[in-house]
Nucleic acid binder design. Structure first.
Lengths: 162, 162
DNA sequence: TATTGTTATACTCTATAACTATA
DNA sequence: TATAGTTATAGAGTATAACAATA
């Protein structure tokens, strides 16, 4: 039988977060913040924020990708990408080139410096991912990625609006 | 045998995002954005952003909780909570009361209006969660929450820094 | 001396409108 | 007429420093 509490006005000793923890949105955001915090810490020597890494990674794996394609893939608004690309150009990480088939567009490529930067940064990301996933078995980790993708990647490639 | 491509300069037709999709941080952020977008859409009639809902939910389930406890539980900085609480007070959703055991602190409670607002809002959240999880079986959904929590909820309750 | 709540403020991130060059 | 890229700018979100009152 539980010991009766003293009759004091309502105070909270341990916060009950169980309801929030039953919500996918809450849990996904907490995990995203956890990983992003560690990411920024570890990637500081490489001078890359998460979004920088995402952009450079897509250019690396898709040479000649356009700004518009980057914006669609990463859910970035075009005006907010312009500054990033300009900064990358100033730092000699990215090179812009007229698109061969569309005179309005610019094709994006990593420079040699950009390739080198990413070659150093990717293992750092791999390492921090491994640490974050440390409490999960490899099978659990793969399952987690798969379940997350089932949420945001429609099997039918219907256009996403935002 | 694949048909040889025409010899044109590098252009990208379909963006290859497979590397990013192998990263937990990327997937968690995409899911968080997906759920938050739907959340804001559905909760607009209730005039509650995700963070508003989280704060009111914690007050509801922890009557007498302090601002400091809210900040710790939700990873909000104290200066950024002040305005929210003030707004809630103006809207008669939350009531502040001197803390019975700590003269510096304020104990927070929902008003009758606040309870009513949350009583309407919670079913909306339950509904949208069910929709987002629609592609998953109930067992998969529970497993997803469990795996996410293993990432950000340490079994040993070590203090998080940020 | 440390902590709670608060103010003021700066910085970053995200969003909107409008323009140009080209399709 | 629609789209890619760009500029300028507004708004929301997040961060730091400093202070008064209390522990």
């Amino acid at each position: 039988m539980p010991i009766p509490k003293k009759n004091i006005p309502a105070t909270v000793d341990k916060v009950d977060s169980r309801y929030l923890e039953s919500l996918l949105g809450y849990n996904a955001r907490r995990v995203a913040l956890t990983v992003i915090d560690l990411f920024m810490e570890r990637m500081a020597p490489h001078d890359l924020r998460p979004v920088d890494f995402s952009v450079l990674s897509l250019i690396r794996n898709n040479p000649g990708i356009t700004s518009r394609q980057l914006c669609t893939a990463l859910d970035i608004l075009p005006p907010n990408l312009v500054g990033m690309i300009s900064t990358f150009e100033k730092k000699k990480l990215v090179r812009r080139q007229p698109h061969p088939l569309d005179g309005r567009a610019m094709a994006l490529f990593l420079t040699v410096d950009g390739e080198a930067r990413m070659a150093l940064a990717e293992p750092t990301v791999t390492q921090l991912e491994a640490e974050v996933a440390g409490r999960l078995t490899p099978a659990e980790f793969q399952n987690l990625l798969h379940l997350l993708q089932k949420i945001y990647l429609p099997s039918e490639p219907a256009p996403r609006k935002r």
